[in-house]
Design a protein around this nucleic acid. Structure first.
Lengths: 190, 190
DNA sequence: CCCTTTGTATTATGACCGTACGACCATAAG
DNA sequence: CTTATGGTCGTACGGTCATAATACAAAGGG
């Protein structure tokens, strides 16, 4: 009685997680209802609770998945310090600013994540630190531990810059801010 | 027929704006309902629409008021560049991190503001730029215009750092991040 | 000093959306 | 063709924004 083939449910679950990640980044966590989230995955709200215990459960899972995906994308960039500069320039680009649903979950959701419960914040912390350790290894392969705080601070600069650039109505100023952010991030990495 | 004395309604309105500002910073914009916002001001939801056209109207007004208040507080700090260092240290302090409802509206709400309608973002832009111009005048009294982008970028660093420090569950790391943020902010201001 | 006038706030109501759950159905595996 | 799995649909109950009808309080006129 191997009923359905294990993959079906897992694949559906993964589809929900991925579409939810995009929806959260577009509309915010509080701004995304379960019915909408399920609709994005081509399902109806009733099926939700067969996959997740609660909305908070999905939030934590989606945040983790988004950061895992971001980490994988970052790992594919040219290795070492050269790659870091590429990463900074892509992160602080008008394209990234104008497409939040395809971009960094921290930039889209960080203050809402800060108001989430401890389990969600714990998942966020672990996932971000994994990315930071990758960055630190690029920056200082001989002593990544001490570089952790440095890259964390540069990450904070990039997140804040992108958020601010998204909030400003003056597009020209928002562009200038991105460019200044690139210069400052690169300066802090030296 | 001067019935009530003009001040009464204006005072009530101002009380709503101020308590709403605190509530938004604590619970988020989407996370704060009209009934709760009015309850914070000692009123019931029905009275809301005698003071504001809509919730969005209050959001824009409260954001503006919060930034105006922040600007006034910052103006009271020791003048010139010396004051800037004080500001950075107070902003990136554990006290500020642990009391979002009394702190910077950008740190508490920036990504949600980025998802607001254009009128709200316009009000935000104007209010933030007023603060930035004050900062620029402190940093480079002889040429404040060119310093605007610099201080805007440092502001982004401070906002992102505080948000990240709030989201991390590792308190020790969050403290280290604040200290690194201070060092980096001061370095960028040189 | 009462009583009307007028502005403010409360309570009640509207239609809709939020999370969560349970009953039912369809389909795929054996 | 049975079975249980993954899904839809319907439902409960509370919260959302917003409006309307109602109660109340304050100031001025008689």
């Amino acid at each position: 009685m191997a009923r359905y083939g294990k993959e079906h449910k897992l694949a559906t679950r993964q589809r929900i997680i991925e579409t939810a990640g995009r929806r959260f980044k577009r509309s915010g966590i509080d701004g995304s209802g379960v019915a909408t989230l399920m609709g994005d995955a081509g399902l109806t709200n009733g099926a939700f609770y067969a996959h997740f215990e609660s909305k908070e459960d999905l939030v934590a899972t989606a945040v983790s998945d988004q950061l895992r995906e971001q980490r994988e994308q970052l790992a594919a960039v040219a290795p070492g310090r050269a790659g870091l500069e590429q990463i900074v320039r892509a992160y602080l680009s008008p394209e990234h600013r104008d497409n939040p649903e395809e971009g960094c979950p921290s930039a889209a959701l960080l203050d809402e994540i800060g108001r989430c419960g401890e389990p969600t914040r714990q998942v966020y912390t672990d996932s971000v630190l994994a990315i930071m350790d990758d960055f630190a290894a690029r920056l200082a392969p001989e002593d990544p531990a001490s570089a952790r705080t440095t890259v964390l601070s540069v990450y904070a600069l990039m997140v804040g810059t992108l958020q601010l650039s998204r909030a400003l109505t003056d597009r020209g100023l928002a562009d200038e801010l991105l460019e200044q952010g690139i210069r400052n991030a690169l300066a802090l990495l030296d």
